[in-house]
Amino acid sequence: MINEFKVITLCGSTRFKEQFLEEQKRLTLEGNVVISVGLFGHSGDEEVWKPGIKEMLDRMHLSKIDMADEIFVINVDGYIGESTKREISYALAHGKTVKYLEKPREPMTETPRIFIA
């Protein structure tokens, strides 16, 4: 928490840019500090695919998880890709709460999880 504000990092596939923006707005209006991705590689930000950039962004996103009280997974239609699975595992290993936009398609082996509809 920062002052009275919970810090939430958004995680999920960058193909869901619109949902990231919607959830960022909703969570902010609910009184949270929201940390999101800086680029949407699967939604047109071509810079992501330059040598070394995606790897740097992946490491940076783990730092964003470190700063958060919890993560909120943008998993449209229950989809969770490999990068997001790693982020969820990382968050759980570091004692972060994990909440989901939708019920995941596959159960994660780590517990606990919280589903938010």
Rank of each mutant, 00 (worst) to 15 (best):
A91V: 05
M60T: 01
Y79Q: 04
E102F: 10
S13W: 02
D69I: 05
E55V: 02
F20A: 05
F72S: 07
I71H: 05
E30A: 14
D58R: 07
I80S: 04
R86P: 00
K6H: 08
I35W: 00
K96H: 11
T97M: 14
G52W: 06
M108T: 06
I71F: 04
W49L: 05
E46T: 12
K103S: 12
D77Y: 13
F16C: 03
V37Q: 04
D69W: 05
F16A: 13
V98I: 14
E87F: 05
I65K: 03
E47G: 02
I8S: 04
N32F: 03
F115K: 06
L27S: 07
V37G: 00
I2G: 02
E82H: 09
E55R: 11
I71N: 08
A93T: 13
E23G: 00
L62R: 07
G52D: 06
K103A: 12
D58L: 10
F72Y: 15
A68D: 03
F5S: 11
S83Q: 09
I2H: 09
K6C: 03
G31H: 08
K54A: 13
H61D: 01
A117S: 10
A93V: 01
T111R: 14
G81M: 08
Y79R: 09
T109H: 10
I8W: 01
K103G: 00
R15L: 14
S83F: 03
W49S: 12
T28A: 13
M108W: 02
C11E: 06
Q24L: 12
D66Q: 03
H61I: 05
Q19W: 08
L10H: 08
F16G: 00
M60S: 01
N3H: 11
E110T: 13
G52N: 09
V33I: 15
L92R: 14
